[in-house]
Computed example of a mutant assay.
Amino acid sequence: MVAAALASIAAPVSASAADFELVFEAGTACEFELRVGVTAGSAITRQFTDSEGNIVRTLTAGRGNDLTFTNAITQATVSLRGNGSVTSTTLDADGTSTVRSTGHNVVILYPSDVPAGPSTTLYVGRVTYEIDAQAIFTITGSSGRTRDICDELS
Protein backbone atom coordinates (compact mmCIF):
# COMPACT_ATOMS: atom_id res chain seq x y z
CA MET A 1 0.00 0.00 0.00
CA VAL A 2 1.03 3.57 -0.51
CA ALA A 3 1.23 6.14 2.24
CA ALA A 4 -0.15 9.54 1.56
CA ALA A 5 1.39 12.88 2.15
CA LEU A 6 -1.20 15.59 2.16
CA ALA A 7 0.39 18.97 1.71
CA SER A 8 -0.39 20.91 4.28
CA ILE A 9 -0.26 18.86 3.07
CA ALA A 10 2.75 17.61 1.04
CA ALA A 11 1.04 17.16 -2.32
CA PRO A 12 -0.95 20.32 -2.79
CA VAL A 13 -3.74 20.81 -5.25
CA SER A 14 -3.56 23.83 -7.56
CA ALA A 15 -5.66 26.85 -6.58
CA SER A 16 -8.12 26.16 -9.40
CA ALA A 17 -8.88 22.58 -8.38
CA ALA A 18 -12.30 21.72 -6.99
CA ASP A 19 -12.87 20.50 -3.45
CA PHE A 20 -12.84 16.73 -2.97
CA GLU A 21 -12.91 13.99 -0.33
CA LEU A 22 -10.49 11.13 0.25
CA VAL A 23 -11.72 7.98 2.00
CA PHE A 24 -9.29 5.62 3.74
CA GLU A 25 -10.58 2.19 4.78
CA ALA A 26 -10.33 1.20 8.44
CA GLY A 27 -6.80 0.03 9.23
CA THR A 28 -5.06 2.11 6.56
CA ALA A 29 -4.81 5.74 7.79
CA CYS A 30 -6.43 5.17 11.21
CA GLU A 31 -7.97 2.16 12.96
CA PHE A 32 -11.38 3.40 11.76
CA GLU A 33 -12.53 4.60 8.33
CA LEU A 34 -11.10 8.09 7.85
CA ARG A 35 -12.60 10.68 5.53
CA VAL A 36 -10.57 13.72 4.57
CA GLY A 37 -12.31 16.72 3.05
CA VAL A 38 -9.86 18.82 1.03
CA THR A 39 -10.31 22.45 0.03
CA ALA A 40 -7.63 23.61 -2.37
CA GLY A 41 -4.90 25.97 -1.18
CA SER A 42 -2.57 28.14 -3.21
CA ALA A 43 0.68 26.21 -3.34
CA ILE A 44 2.81 26.31 -6.49
CA THR A 45 4.97 23.43 -7.75
CA ARG A 46 8.09 23.81 -9.89
CA GLN A 47 9.87 20.93 -11.61
CA PHE A 48 13.59 20.73 -12.29
CA THR A 49 15.04 18.52 -15.02
CA ASP A 50 18.42 17.08 -15.91
CA SER A 51 20.16 17.59 -19.28
CA GLU A 52 18.05 14.78 -20.77
CA GLY A 53 14.74 16.33 -19.70
CA ASN A 54 14.07 13.89 -16.83
CA ILE A 55 12.44 15.40 -13.74
CA VAL A 56 14.97 15.11 -10.92
CA ARG A 57 13.47 17.44 -8.33
CA THR A 58 10.22 19.17 -7.49
CA LEU A 59 9.72 22.12 -5.18
CA THR A 60 6.27 22.99 -3.80
CA ALA A 61 5.68 26.10 -1.70
CA GLY A 62 2.76 28.18 -0.53
CA ARG A 63 -0.40 27.86 1.51
CA GLY A 64 -1.57 24.27 1.63
CA ASN A 65 -5.04 22.79 1.62
CA ASP A 66 -7.69 23.22 4.29
CA LEU A 67 -8.43 19.72 5.64
CA THR A 68 -11.33 18.25 7.59
CA PHE A 69 -10.70 14.77 9.04
CA THR A 70 -13.79 12.75 10.00
CA ASN A 71 -14.08 9.48 11.91
CA ALA A 72 -16.72 7.70 9.80
CA ILE A 73 -18.03 5.76 12.83
CA THR A 74 -18.41 8.53 15.43
CA GLN A 75 -18.56 11.52 13.04
CA ALA A 76 -15.97 13.31 15.21
CA THR A 77 -14.02 15.88 13.19
CA VAL A 78 -10.73 17.73 13.30
CA SER A 79 -10.26 20.69 10.95
CA LEU A 80 -6.93 22.18 9.92
CA ARG A 81 -6.57 25.41 8.00
CA GLY A 82 -3.97 25.36 5.27
CA ASN A 83 -0.74 26.91 6.44
CA GLY A 84 2.54 27.56 4.75
CA SER A 85 4.84 24.76 3.77
CA VAL A 86 7.75 24.01 1.50
CA THR A 87 8.37 20.50 0.15
CA SER A 88 11.44 19.50 -1.84
CA THR A 89 11.36 16.08 -3.49
CA THR A 90 14.46 14.56 -5.09
CA LEU A 91 13.64 11.84 -7.64
CA ASP A 92 16.21 9.12 -8.29
CA ALA A 93 16.57 7.10 -11.50
CA ASP A 94 15.83 3.85 -9.61
CA GLY A 95 12.28 5.00 -8.79
CA THR A 96 12.99 6.10 -5.23
CA SER A 97 12.63 9.61 -3.87
CA THR A 98 13.58 11.67 -0.84
CA VAL A 99 11.13 14.24 0.53
CA ARG A 100 12.02 17.14 2.83
CA SER A 101 9.06 19.16 4.12
CA THR A 102 8.97 22.18 6.40
CA GLY A 103 6.00 24.05 7.79
CA HIS A 104 2.66 22.30 8.36
CA ASN A 105 2.43 18.87 6.72
CA VAL A 106 0.17 15.86 7.24
CA VAL A 107 1.67 12.44 6.59
CA ILE A 108 -0.48 9.32 6.46
CA LEU A 109 1.38 6.04 6.99
CA TYR A 110 -0.05 2.63 6.09
CA PRO A 111 0.76 -0.66 7.86
CA SER A 112 3.41 -1.39 5.19
CA ASP A 113 5.33 1.84 5.91
CA VAL A 114 8.12 2.54 8.39
CA PRO A 115 7.16 3.10 11.12
CA ALA A 116 4.14 0.95 10.46
CA GLY A 117 0.77 2.68 10.42
CA PRO A 118 -2.03 3.18 10.44
CA SER A 119 -1.28 6.75 11.44
CA THR A 120 -2.23 10.25 10.40
CA THR A 121 0.13 12.86 11.81
CA LEU A 122 0.44 16.61 11.47
CA TYR A 123 4.10 17.66 11.52
CA VAL A 124 4.75 21.31 12.39
CA GLY A 125 8.43 21.93 11.74
CA ARG A 126 10.37 19.54 9.56
CA VAL A 127 9.75 15.98 8.38
CA THR A 128 11.88 13.94 5.98
CA TYR A 129 11.04 10.61 4.44
CA GLU A 130 12.08 8.27 1.68
CA ILE A 131 9.74 6.55 -0.76
CA ASP A 132 11.01 3.33 -2.30
CA ALA A 133 10.17 1.94 -5.75
CA GLN A 134 7.18 0.04 -4.26
CA ALA A 135 5.85 3.31 -2.73
CA ILE A 136 6.75 2.35 0.84
CA PHE A 137 7.29 5.46 2.98
CA THR A 138 10.08 5.49 5.58
CA ILE A 139 10.26 8.44 7.96
CA THR A 140 13.94 9.34 8.30
CA GLY A 141 13.69 12.33 10.62
CA SER A 142 11.58 15.09 12.08
CA SER A 143 11.86 18.07 14.38
CA GLY A 144 9.24 20.33 15.84
CA ARG A 145 5.79 19.31 17.02
CA THR A 146 3.56 16.42 16.00
CA ARG A 147 -0.19 16.00 16.35
CA ASP A 148 -1.84 12.55 16.23
CA ILE A 149 -5.04 13.09 14.26
CA CYS A 150 -6.30 9.50 14.72
CA ASP A 151 -5.98 9.81 18.50
CA GLU A 152 -7.95 13.05 18.50
CA LEU A 153 -10.75 11.42 16.47
CA SER A 154 -10.97 8.25 18.61
Rank of each mutant, 00 (worst) to 15 (best):
A11P: 02
S79R: 12
Q134P: 03
I55S: 05
G37V: 06
T28M: 11
G62F: 07
Q134K: 14
A72P: 02
E52V: 11
G37A: 12
V38N: 02
I136E: 08
D94V: 00
V38Q: 03
V13K: 14
T39G: 04
F32L: 03
S101H: 03
S79Q: 14
R147F: 06
T45G: 05
G37M: 07
V86F: 10
S79E: 13
G125E: 07
R126M: 15
E25Y: 14
T138Q: 10
N65P: 01
G117R: 02
P118R: 05
H104L: 03
V106Y: 00
T28L: 12
V107W: 00
A116M: 06
P12K: 01
Y110D: 14
A61E: 15
T138N: 05
T87W: 02
D94Y: 00
V2D: 14
S79H: 12
Y129I: 07
A61D: 12
T89E: 10
F20K: 09
T77W: 05
T98E: 15
A133M: 08
A18I: 05
D151R: 15
A5H: 02
G144C: 09
V13S: 15
V86S: 15
N54A: 15
D50T: 03
R46S: 05
N54H: 14
E130N: 12
L6T: 08
T60I: 05
E152A: 13
A4P: 01
F24C: 03
A93P: 04
I136D: 06
I149S: 05
R147I: 01
G144P: 04
A26H: 03
S101R: 02
T28H: 09
Y123Q: 00
I149A: 08
A18M: 07
E130W: 06
E21N: 11
N65C: 02
A10M: 07
A5N: 06
T120V: 08
Y110W: 12
G53I: 10
T128L: 09
F48C: 03
R63Q: 09
I136M: 09
R100E: 15
L122A: 04
A5Q: 03
E33C: 02
V124D: 13
E130H: 09
D148Q: 09
V23Y: 13
A72N: 05
A26P: 03
R81F: 07
L91F: 13
I139N: 01
V38R: 01
N65W: 00
T49E: 12
A76G: 11
T128M: 11
S112L: 08
P115D: 06
L91H: 08
A4S: 08
A29S: 14
T39E: 10
T146Y: 01
S85D: 04
G37N: 06
R46E: 09
G53Q: 13
V13C: 10
A93D: 13
V56L: 03
A29I: 12
C150D: 08
Y129M: 04
A17K: 01
P115H: 03
